[in-house]
């Protein structure tokens, strides 16, 4: 019983263990302030994780989310400040554009059958370029309206609002994965696209939607990021995709499908990434060591998780019926 329980909640145990070790090392760790800080620092990644997780679940990957978040911020600032579209129309327009971009990526990947890794890598580049072009490489300060600024600066119950946004998105994503037909179909497509297709599931459609979802959460994250940093900037959000993918993979969702995927796991992965950074700070480890430790932790976590090994899932590339 205990081993089974342990197996099921392995990640949570590891997280608690990490917290325990950190609280012994530093008494400052288990303070509300510090924990709130950690959660705040990961909230952007957490929001992105909630949508981006569907591309690995359906045996793809999306590396463009960092650039897309940055582009969304820049677009939003342009719409609101330069064009004076008003808050809500600007937000909606930004999200619509981001989702369209995700949709196009999804179409290219599924209909032309090209590897998602290279397409989204290229997308990362060109989206960054567009963001630079639109913003002319400058920071666009955002000070108004106060309702928007409150998202990044405000607090509820003493916790910053972005944390709540992250929690809401994680919960929604969890419901999507566990309680809806889309979630069921996404896991099935990841497990075996051919069987899925023969069972009447439109695998291409499911995969395309995954890229729309990741674009959608990237846009939300970009907007929240704007509000937190009170500016839009093409460099803001660059590189976030690596943290997002690290969190997803640490959380036990393999790249390349295989019928696995857990949103809560990815959340735990996100918190782990936050803990590692926070712990290193608390231990006064020079920041230059952080990437080394993070890299090694990821490699060991991967090495320990059998689900993540190659060959556990049917490859997307063989999906052609």
């Amino acid at each position: 019983m205990i081993p089974k329980l342990f197996h099921k909640y392995k990640l949570l145990f590891i997280l608690i263990l990490m917290a325990a070790v950190l609280s012994i090392i530093s008494p400052r760790f288990l303070t509300k302030e510090n924990l709130s800080n950690v959660l705040w620092s990961i909230s952007i990644v957490g929001i992105m994780v909630s949508g981006t997780i569907y591309s690995p679940i359906t045996s793809g990957v999306d590396l463009s989310v960092g650039s897309l978040a940055a582009l969304s911020g820049v677009l939003f600032a342009k719409f609101m400040i330069t064009f004076g579209f008003g808050l809500i129309p600007s937000i909606l327009l930004t999200i619509a554009i981001a989702c369209t971009i995700g949709f196009i990526h999804g179409l290219i990947i599924t209909r032309i059958n090209v590897p998602p890794l290279i397409i989204t890598m290229a997308a990362k580049t060109y989206l960054f370029g567009i963001a630079m072009l639109i913003s002319k490489g400058e920071m666009i300060p955002i000070m108004e309206p106060s309702s928007f600024m409150a998202i990044g600066g405000g607090k509820i119950l003493g916790f910053p609002i972005p944390i709540f946004i992250m929690v809401i998105f994680i919960l929604l994503s969890h419901i999507l994965l566990k309680k809806t037909a889309y979630g069921r179909k996404a896991l099935a497509v990841g497990a075996n696209p051919v069987t899925a297709e023969l069972s009447g599931i439109d695998a291409m459609q499911i995969q395309t939607i995954a890229y729309i979802l990741s674009a959608f959460t990237a846009a939300i994250a970009g907007l929240v990021l704007c509000s937190i940093s009170q500016l839009a900037y093409a460099l803001l959000g660059q590189g976030l995709e690596l943290e997002v993918i690290t969190a997803i993979v640490l959380g036990g969702t393999p790249l390349g499908g295989g019928g696995f995927g857990t949103v809560f796991g990815a959340l735990i992965g996100t918190v782990m990434v936050g803990f590692i950074g926070n712990g290193l700070n608390l231990m006064n480890v020079p920041s230059s060591f952080h990437p080394i430790v993070t890299g090694l932790v990821i490699i060991s976590a991967l090495a320990l998780n059998e689900n993540l090994r190659m060959g556990s899932g049917t490859k997307l590339k063989k999906a052609k019926l």
Binding site: L117, G295, I298
Partner: peptide, 28 residues
């Protein structure tokens, strides 16, 4: 790492990228 743990090349080199640039920073 790729051979021993049978991990995808992409994720391994993504992680080792962090390790190497961290080491470079440590030296600096």
């Amino acid at each position: 790492v790729i051979n021993r743990f049978k991990l995808p090349d992409f994720i391994v080199t993504l992680s080792s990228k962090g390790v190497f640039s961290g080491l470079a920073l440590v030296i600096a």
